[in-house]
Design a protein around this nucleic acid. Structure first.
Length: 426
RNA sequence: CGGGGAGUAGCGCAGUUUGGUAGCGCAUCUGGUUUGGGACCAGAGGGUCGCAGGUUCAAAUCCUGUCUCCCCGACCA
């Protein structure tokens, strides 16, 4: 059972005015709703409400990873240069890789991705085909010194990402797990209630041959993609330089006309093959005692970027509209008075809903009704329950569903059951 | 890195052209009146005008340098 949170004690500073630095909806709203604050270009602090959302997204990702047999680890963010020299990426990666020296003049970098460090770690443990396959994942900060960070969390330099790495004895086994990962990624998008399309993609710096990206459709997205109802999809980048997005194209699978859209890449799966195991000397002995290079895959989900993508897709003029699955709190009880029987009722209603297993915040601030309504809409709690003297005296409370704007009046004495019934359908 | 814009109170901004005691709105604090969709009245606090030099009797304002932030592009998850 979670305890009721009191808005008067919550560190959740909302902004009435638009922050000058923000252009797109997700950026403006995550600042205004008090989810994040900027520390430098492309780097953000997460405030209590924002961090609650992040933790919920992480937990969904964790659930889906664990469900397909992945094991969670945590890897260092600071990585020795020698591993990157071994893989060849110390030279290949470019200035996006943030490098520095420690007090002994030893070279290090901030991990933009973790193939090197995990391959090196695994190298010390794998001896036999009997150890394979397995998949390790972590949820950790990454740092990429982007040329131009922008759009708040959509392209930060420091960002929260789940990255998984799998090791296999054959291409077939890699393919099998790759498909499981792709399935998990689809379920993650669905649990986040994203309107998304899986598409064929380039593998970029990570390397490897086969890659799919999961795109949240959004005009603010930096990627351009084509997709078809039959399930086909591709980034226009992966289709090559001669792809002309100004004319229509037909689907290579079913010949229907392709749809063109912009998207936010929230996750990506790669088949790396033996690229890293070969270059870094990761081997195991097969059934015949012969040394072999494991096939590898890697799988990333942008956690903080997913949060931005959800906001980008799910907001209105008043603010954010969270899905139940990742709302910072699922229910806000708006107490319009703070020192009378109506308030006591509001507090007990909040407590009963918390006992039922919901995350509830009660707005007990000494603010005017308008301020409380505006903040509730702005932060985007899925369900608002308004308890005021007026309704209390006539024997009812008002319940508002943020997503639809629908308002219902329910009787005081049966409010818990009525609210539970409404929540069933959210 | 190329192009454009911006740094003045916690936030949003005016003032810079034409140098002359640093302002407005919101927020904050005090008192009062209010109280179902971002209240009202009265009072108060809060500023090295991004930073460093220079010109001048005098610089937020002019000059030089520099840092930071935002947008477009190239690049990228």
């Amino acid at each position: 059972m979670s305890k009721v949170a009191y808005m008067s004690k919550l560190y959740a500073p909302t902004l009435k005015e638009l922050p000058a630095e923000a252009e797109i909806a997700s950026h403006k709203l995550s600042l205004r709703a008090g989810l994040i604050r900027k520390s430098a270009s492309g780097m953000y602090s997460f405030l209590p409400l924002g961090y609650r959302v992040i933790k919920k997204i992480e937990q969904i990702v964790r659930d889906e990873m664990d469900a397909i047999g992945c094991q969670e680890v945590i890897l260092p963010i600071v990585q020795p240069a020698e591993l990157w020299k071994e893989s060849g990426r110390w030279d290949d990666y470019g200035p996006e890789l943030a490098r520095f020296k420690d007090r002994h003049e030893r070279e290090f970098c901030l991990g933009p991705t973790h193939e090197e460090i995990i391959t090196d770690m695994v190298k010390g443990e794998i001896r036999s085909y009997r150890n394979l396959p397995f998949t390790l994942y972590q949820i950790n900060m990454k740092f990429r010194d982007e040329v131009r960070p922008r759009f708040g969390l959509l392209r930060g330099r420091e960002f929260n990402m789940k990255d998984a790495y799998s090791f296999h004895t054959s291409q077939e086994d890699l393919q099998k797990h790759y498909d499981e990962q792709a399935g998990a990624y689809g379920r993650i998008c669905e649990r986040l209630e994203l309107d998304y399309r899986p598409v064929d993609a380039d593998s970029g710096q990570i390397g490897g041959d086969i890659s799919r990206e999961f795109m949240a459709l959004a005009d603010a997205g930096e990627a351009e993609l084509v997709y078809c109802d039959c399930g086909y999809g591709a980034t226009t980048e992966s289709l090559g330089e001669d792809f002309d997005s100004t004319i229509s194209h037909t689907c290579p699978q079913c010949n229907k006309e392709l749809k063109l859209a912009r998207g936010i890449e929230v996750s990506q799966v790669f088949q790396l093959g033996t690229k890293y195991s070969k270059v870094m000397g990761l081997t195991y002995q097969d059934e015949d005692g012969v040394d072999q290079f494991p096939y590898m895959g890697c799988y990333g989900v942008g956690i903080s970027r997913s949060m931005a993508a959800v906001i980008e897709q799910s907001h209105d003029d008043a603010g954010i509209i969270w899905p139940m699955s990742i709302a910072p709190y699922q229910i806000i009880v708006i107490a319009l008075s703070t020192d009378d029987d109506a308030y006591n009722y509001a507090e007990s209603l909040a407590t009963q809903l918390a006992v039922e297993g919901f995350e509830v915040v009660i707005d007990d601030r000494d603010e005017r009704a308008g301020v409380k309504f505006a903040d509730a809409d702005l932060v985007g709690y899925p369900l608002q329950i308004v308890v005021g003297k007026r309704g209390f005296e006539s024997g009812d409370v008002e319940v508002k569903i943020r997503k639809t704007g629908e308002k219902r009046t329910v009787p005081l004495d049966d409010a818990v059951n009525e609210v539970l019934a409404i929540l069933e359908n959210l």
